[in-house]
Design a protein around this nucleic acid. Sequence first.
DNA 1: TTTT
DNA 2: TTTT
Lengths: 162, 162, 162, 162
Amino acid sequence: MVNKVILVGNVGKDPEVRYFDNDQAVANFPLATTERGFKTRDGQEVPDRTEWHNIVAWRGLAKIAESYIKKGTQLYVEGRIRTRSYDDANGVRKYMTEIYADTINLLGRRSSGDNDQAGSADQPMQHTSSNQQSAAQNNLSNSSDQGSFNAGESGPEDDLPF
Amino acid sequence: MVNKVILVGNVGKDPEVRYFDNDQAVANFPLATTERGFKTRDGQEVPDRTEWHNIVAWRGLAKIAESYIKKGTQLYVEGRIRTRSYDDANGVRKYMTEIYADTINLLGRRSSGDNDQAGSADQPMQHTSSNQQSAAQNNLSNSSDQGSFNAGESGPEDDLPF
Amino acid sequence: MVNKVILVGNVGKDPEVRYFDNDQAVANFPLATTERGFKTRDGQEVPDRTEWHNIVAWRGLAKIAESYIKKGTQLYVEGRIRTRSYDDANGVRKYMTEIYADTINLLGRRSSGDNDQAGSADQPMQHTSSNQQSAAQNNLSNSSDQGSFNAGESGPEDDLPF
Amino acid sequence: MVNKVILVGNVGKDPEVRYFDNDQAVANFPLATTERGFKTRDGQEVPDRTEWHNIVAWRGLAKIAESYIKKGTQLYVEGRIRTRSYDDANGVRKYMTEIYADTINLLGRRSSGDNDQAGSADQPMQHTSSNQQSAAQNNLSNSSDQGSFNAGESGPEDDLPF
DNA sequence: TTTT
DNA sequence: TTTT
């Protein structure tokens, strides 16, 4: 049983982050992936096609979304498809498909001049939900670990040859 | 821009296959993926959760669906997320998220006795849409390849029992 | 930074499992994936091509490998590529590429007659390493979670034989 | 049978591109993915770990590599694992694991000032080999499509310089 | 609606 | 609603 989604796209709006009593947080934002159009053999134009994904990020990923993700950000998102139903204002049952994020990577974070000076903000980042399927199945309750996670990021790749 | 879905699950109903004038075919069927539940650290039970995916398979994949996929079949499906809107009988706009299949693999096709004798029907199958993203994005006009694809499929595997 | 491998194939030999003093375990086994050959347009035969992957599974996954995986088993494996170097008996440096498993699913576990009687052993299984990339990359100090992971596994899934 | 690799990383050296008589081209370059280190519960430091992948890109992908990929470029690569053997200068059999690219995306291609002026070269790009697994496994005789593929590439994306 |  |  595998339910895996891998997306690379651009964020359409700044994330909306909500906090709960138990220190839980959840972020929601749209992510666009565009398939380039093409021309069929018989000359028909198939236009570009943009798909909008509703990304949902919990816990540490929500906090990262709040701090680092904004309209236009290019992201790698790995997660699972979840369809949720709810009743709208008129009592009509609605369905909404969301991508429950397990891992988020900020892409393309290079300094503007592409000159790799020390201390630049080029650090790529990867963040993984501790509540992901794996973790969930492992019964981990490690939301606090995510705090220490951000700090670790900016240093360790300085010795890399690029 | 990446929009990739990888599923391993079980088919919920026999596929519905429709044919069009231009010899096109499309198959639709539901696929279930179940996430096992767990118990949280504080003793809460999180139950199993089954997600139903609407799989859409075109062309050669549709024909394969018709011939080899039925209720209960275990599948590997690789594809893309597509949200489609339509107006229902009451003129209400509805949205439906589908998985547009690019590759389908039939899993677990072992002979009934699991005894690996020669000539057993253990051959796993993989099939790939020729209209997948890659092709589309490369402007291939290979609808005729899809013809030869289908023909080819039954060609080189003629010694296989399907 | 993403290093992800997804394989569906058949196990080539029974796993070799080694145990360590600290109750750690590791399993190694080969997994075959076969790409079907084809004929090029100019008539050349491209033969089938089988790739052998060296799968490495730690901790709970090793135990599952020992109990449920044997020669011929069809598996879904998700993991990471790791190249390891070592010096052979002649002091020659050798490199070996392995797939470090994060998730393993046993596929196609249907009862021999495909008759779904109660109590059959058809349970599909998914198992995920608690030491997977996500945890590692998030600077989590959850080795104990890994402990509780193993324990946890037998918690919420008490009806499973592991 | 699935053999899929998904990588997001940085190119370590400018690609080496070789051309053949039949207008074929192949590019080789190393891609680094870094797994962040962490501290285990008992205080052990697990350092960062960089994995170097040998990427091989044929045909149109090779030309794209030549034109757009250089040391430092951040890439999404989707492909397959292939282990190749060869005899070195001393007649010793060697093995080399490569990633045969099916799709390459250039990531993070924003104009240097992040100011979205018209006509900027910010186009993200995705490119897919027409000789990918799917085609191969479906017995397509589309080597000529690969020809038309390359031609086709410059068709619908005529504003792109390839 | 599947599967275990 | 993004991005090119």
